[in-house]
Design a protein around this nucleic acid. Structure first.
Length: 477
RNA sequence: CGGGACGUGGCGCAGUCUGGUAGCGCACUCGGCUGGGGGCCGAGUGGUCGCCGGUUCAAAUCCGGCCGUCCCGACCA
């Protein structure tokens, strides 16, 4: 192999941070914008987002939700109506203060999230219990003026969906917030092959204005946790603040109960961190914009024939509904193409050369294990279908095994500190439920409570020694 | 917001200490040979050296200010 003929991806183990940045740039997922924290999502990165979007959107529709769109600009006074909410978001708002050459009467926030403005509409849209439940989702961009940014993982502007629902009873709202958490969880497991843990947030990590926040937490390859999606039970907090009421079946005017839930482009960062390796990205087949790429290998006089056969194979795969691609580029060698498609994380490469055509076969190479097999052309489509399923499962299995090997139960605070420092990962321990011990742990170790599992056990708090329940700690992104 | 590093063609860098014709690799364009793991040869295109000011016959280089980016620490999807 020739050395230094093209830019090489930094090794993940050498410099994980540089590896991540290299990968994003070299795989053409995103590119830096002129304003700090802003990024262009390039076609390949956006294709991944579109796949996620479609999957989620189908699930939202299947659970009765409709899409809508709300304004980008939010008057400051709206943000201020819910006390905790403004406290949580005002510090990271970008503000519009001018309209043309004139100073505005009231400054406008570029939405950091849309609860406030949506509630303002909902006040008018909801009159009766017959208007409930109201199940609306919005696909949009939001902006948060972050100090430190990284492509996908933390950007000033990002894309997401935010669901905003309204219900007649507290039970319904609770059910809804848990239902949507489940929807997210399914997408993580089934599409992204990321085995997230689910549970509730502690009070200090809760969404500003929520009664309860549920979360999907993923464990990244470097042992740090990533909050991947959240679902909030808002109770009546916003309904009270925005004066949303309805007449119930008993003719009583009461406040409804609300939820909100979001899933963002941050997940693409999670995908990279969970599945990426020294060769680049690995995209689970169900998510991959391209499931398989045909790479023709031609030489001299066989070129024409190989090209025709490669196109034919590609057409057959397309015809059968596979998201396939054929790389007919004449400028690059096969080896170059192998490297390139591995960098992009295409699950399966199909090599087709003169020898294969002679034997009426093709070579399937899987991205996850590098495994190579020679398959007769006749059974190719069927074998490919099975193989893609195996890759999907294997990626989840690998990520699960990584997560489990990096999830440790500890019994003492000393052990806790050591584990967080040396091994990172999820650390399971008992917590007495007080903000004091939570804060103490955070100050000592930089670890935070990522979630409180739904199934908790009794135990002794590491710091206070008081009785407590299971909590999952980790250092987070 | 604190500490550190750095801004030179699209990307990665050298040149700055010691002022004197702006360079290298990759990418890109054209031609040819190649092709089963980032091929080779030849010819080219592309840069007001982050911005503003100062010193000087002369500034990428020295001085001052500003802006920005990245990395490490306190907040967040």
């Amino acid at each position: 192999m020739a050395e230094g003929t093209a830019e090489r991806l930094t090794k993940k183990s050498e410099d994980p941070s540089k590896w991540y940045l290299d990968l994003v740039r070299m795989a053409k997922l995103a590119d830096y914008g002129p304003v700090r924290g802003t990024f262009a999502i390039r076609p390949y990165g956006f294709a991944i987002w579109e796949r996620i979007q479609r999957d989620l959107d189908d699930r939202f529709k299947a659970t009765g939700h409709q899409n809508a769109y709300f304004p980008l600009l939010i008057p400051e006074s709206y943000l201020k109506k819910e006390g905790e909410h403004v406290e949580g978001f005002a510090p990271e708002c970008a503000w519009v203060t001018m309209g043309g050459d004139d100073e505005l009467e009231e400054r406008l926030a570029v939405r950091p999230t849309s609860e406030s403005i949506i509630c303002d509409f909902y006040r008018n849209w909801i009159q009766s219990y017959r208007d409930l439940p109201l199940l609306i989702n919005q696909w949009s961009n939001v902006m948060r003026w972050e100090m430190v940014t990284r492509p996908f993982l933390r950007t000033a502007e990002f894309l997401w969906q935010e669901g905003h629902t309204v219900h007649a009873t507290a039970e319904e709202a609770r059910e809804e917030s848990l239902r949507m958490l489940g929807v997210y969880r399914d997408t993580f497991y089934e599409m992204l092959s990321i085995p997230v843990l689910t549970g509730a947030k502690s009070a200090s990590e809760r969404f500003a204005g929520a009664v309860e926040t549920y979360t999907c937490e993923g464990l990244m390859g470097d042992g740090r946790a990533l909050q991947a999606a959240t679902s909030h039970d808002l109770g009546q907090n916003f309904a009270r603040a925005f004066d949303i009421t309805f007449l119930d079946e008993n003719q009583d005017r009461v406040h409804p109960f609300q939820t909100s839930w979001g899933f963002s482009t941050r997940t693409i960062g999670g995908l990279i961190l969970v599945h990426g390796d020294d060769k680049g990205l690995k995209i689970p087949p169900r998510l991959a914009p391209t499931e398989a790429v045909v790479v023709p290998i031609w030489r001299g006089e066989s070129k024409g024939q190989v090209r025709i056969e490669a196109q034919k194979l590609y057409a057959e795969l397309k015809e059968s509904g596979l998201r396939a691609e054929v790389d007919l580029d004449e400028e690059h060698s096969p080896g170059w193409k192998f490297t390139e498609h591995e960098l992009r994380g295409v699950p399966v490469r199909i090599e087709l050369g003169p020898k294969d055509i002679e034997k009426d076969q093709a070579v399937l190479v899987r991205r996850d294990t590098g495994g190579k097999e020679f398959v007769p052309r006749k059974g190719l489509r069927e074998r490919l279908r099975v193989l893609l399923g195996e890759i999907q499962d294997n990626l989840l299995a690998q990520a699960t095994s990584m997560r489990d090997h990096n999830t440790r139960r500890v019994e003492s605070y000393g052990e806790f500190k050591e584990t967080i420092r040396d091994q990172k990962g999820f650390v399971v321990a008992s917590w007495d439920g007080t903000a004091e011990t939570e804060q103490r742990i955070k100050e000592d170790t930089k670890a935070t409570i990522r979630l409180l599992p739904f199934e908790r056990e009794e135990g002794r708090d590491l710091v206070s020694g008081r009785s407590g329940e299971t909590a999952v700690f980790a250092r987070a992104y």
